[in-house]
Design a binder for these strands. Structure first.
Lengths: 351, 351
DNA sequence: CCATGCGATTTGATCGTTCAAACCGCCGTG
DNA sequence: CACGGCGGTTTGAACGATCAAATCGCATGG
């Protein structure tokens, strides 16, 4: 802030921060290629030379220029990810992004984030990012039944892996978390705590994710020899609706004593709709899904099914990198188990 | 040249997906440079020629190769961001990242995400990313008082903008949200609803963010001519502690009727600690901070101070790009106002 | 003794773009 | 008519790395 720059014609000075491979080579008294070999194919270089080169690299603080490498290798070492506008109670996106960045970094890749307002805009972005060589492939999230993206990528030979099964699991690699298993764990947990009348609360039928969780609940109930009639929540989109559904259920002759829910939002809504006894304890027990940060903070804390996002991310990156290495490998799918995080106090009475 | 071709295994076939500028030039019957000019300096090209070239570009689906451009221009058009492990109730990170990606995209940049386990590892990552030319600069978040990053970048001339004021605001550009203003709004809101005894609940003194919010509460109380003795919560780190603080306050002779809180987590904890009346309504009113997704879903919903993250992101990107364009511009700071999201039912009785 | 082979290193070409300078008509002016 | 100026366009040279092929030194074997 001392002086205003001379009005001379300095123009845009090119920053000369980068040390090039040739400078290292000169300093070590070898050729560019030898330096390159030290970094990329150490076995081709005599140990003594390699050591000398490494010293020069350290002294000069050489770091290979990414753009030059990318240009030559026709690769970007970047994975594209469209970040959606945040919605919902949970922080799955946070957790997933962090895990992805970590996994990607572990194998020498970075995550490139971009946004898109509409589905078409998103595809346009995919086209541009691959066309310009800005990314090598994509991670797809929030896959829904009629999602165009997996096919779109498959048709163009663009590497991609989706978190969540695509409509045609044979065309695009995917990693998913078994929602049926998650709800089975919820049911098992509630049964172990003495419940027999366990209802399911979730979205209306017709969407893969929700249907799977509902099916998981039903199968687990059957396995325990428990009845499900009148206990499969009609389905609702928002907390207000689900609250109404829960209240209606409680008016049955033999009402549920617990709710296995398709999401934390629903679990919270149900708890609040049914209310608490004089001691302030909820009149029904509920288990949520996705383990949102608020689940642990509630009173009493909410048990919830947690998705292993770090494992998901690991497999996603692995499957993607495999496609980078050998284009055209057949798609693969990986199904992972979620894990119930139980939060009830050990000796606490259910209900 | 008697080269016996290694028939058979071709090895890793380089994907020939990219159309080059020369191919476009050939198709349009001009030279490379003219095509380049059409894209980068249209005024240097005769209208008729430009049109012909544009047609060729469209027909061939030409997209300029990013690596080549980056190499030549010594730029990456990427902004680096270290994504931290998720923590806390709010989804600030989600919202911020989305806003950042959107703002960056608007000016031709992308967001490059990476992770780092420790502070040192983070600096090492910064060094590598700039040294290799992978990013042009950084956005810093979660700035704390003793943060080394702003100075570290400043010393090396690495462009960066921090969300949150750095220790020395003269060395590094920043964008921040006025927490004092936020708490003043909380107080104003509670006063308008009839409260006089309004307490502050927040972190222990000594951290900039928390101190600022506390100061904002105190100033606003004074402005309204209200007493603050015994109402400045001792400070706590977690919900359990804050609950204890809140309960102790309620045992005073003239207890608070409302809490202006430094975070949603504290507001929720305070509400629960104090409990509800027979109708299920909280005995005290509380206003939170950061407008976490769960705030709207609670019963009754929680009013909360919301940070204008889209504006923050916009300014962050703007300040950063300005540094890219002319290196060495003096640091600038931008302070933004948050906005209280009031959620009480209009005619509802306070307390 | 020369051909052969092999490990270690160097040289030349290339990736696709942009910058800087040269080039080429063409017009107006002295 | 020569010359300078000026849009419009082309040519040559980077940018910094890697790949492929050539080269060099040296040991080995017929």
């Amino acid at each position: 802030m001392v002086s205003d720059e001379p009005m001379g014609v300095t123009g845009l000075m090119r920053e000369r921060s980068g040390v090039t491979i040739s400078e290292v080579a000169a300093a070590a008294g070898v050729s560019r290629q030898t330096v390159s070999n030290v970094l990329n194919a150490p076995d081709r270089v005599a140990p003594a030379t390699a050591e000398r080169v490494r010293r020069a690299i350290d002294e000069l603080g050489y770091l290979p220029n990414r753009a030059a490498r990318n240009l030559r290798e026709r690769t970007s070492r970047c994975i594209g990810f469209k970040i959606a506008a945040p919605s919902g109670l949970n922080n799955l996106l946070d957790r997933f992004l962090h895990a992805l960045a970590e996994s990607a970094g572990g194998v020498g890749y970075h995550l490139l984030l971009f946004s898109a307002a509409t589905a078409d805009e998103e595809l346009a972005a995919y086209a541009e990012l691959t066309g310009t060589g800005t990314v090598d492939g994509f991670v797809l999230a929030d896959i829904d039944t009629a999602d165009k993206r997996p096919d779109w990528c498959a048709e163009r030979g663009i590497p991609c892996v989706s978190f969540g099964r695509p409509a045609d699991p044979g065309r695009c690699s995917w990693v998913d978390v078994d929602g049926a298993d998650g709800l089975a764990q919820s049911v098992d947990h509630l049964v172990a705590r003495g419940h027999r009348r366990i209802a399911y609360l979730g979205w209306p039928e017709g969407q893969r994710v929700g249907d799977e969780r509902r099916a998981g609940w039903r199968a687990a109930m059957r396995r325990h020899g428990l009845a499900t009639e009148g206990l499969s929540g009609a389905g609702a989109e928002d907390p207000a609706e689900i609250a109404a559904v829960a209240r209606r259920m409680m008016e049955q002759p033999d009402p549920p004593t617990a709710f296995a829910c398709g999401s934390d939002t629903f679990a919270v809504a149900a708890r609040q709709a049914i209310g608490a006894d004089s001691a302030g304890r909820p009149r029904v027990e509920a288990v949520g899904y996705d383990d949102s940060p608020s689940a642990a903070l509630m009173t009493p804390p909410l048990s919830s099914v947690r998705q292993p996002l770090d494992k998901v991310a690991h497999h996603v990156v692995d499957l993607l990198v495999r496609q980078f290495r050998e284009p055209g490998v057949p798609p693969e799918g990986v199904m992972l188990r979620p894990e119930l995080v139980a939060r009830e106090r050990p000796g606490e009475d259910p209900r």
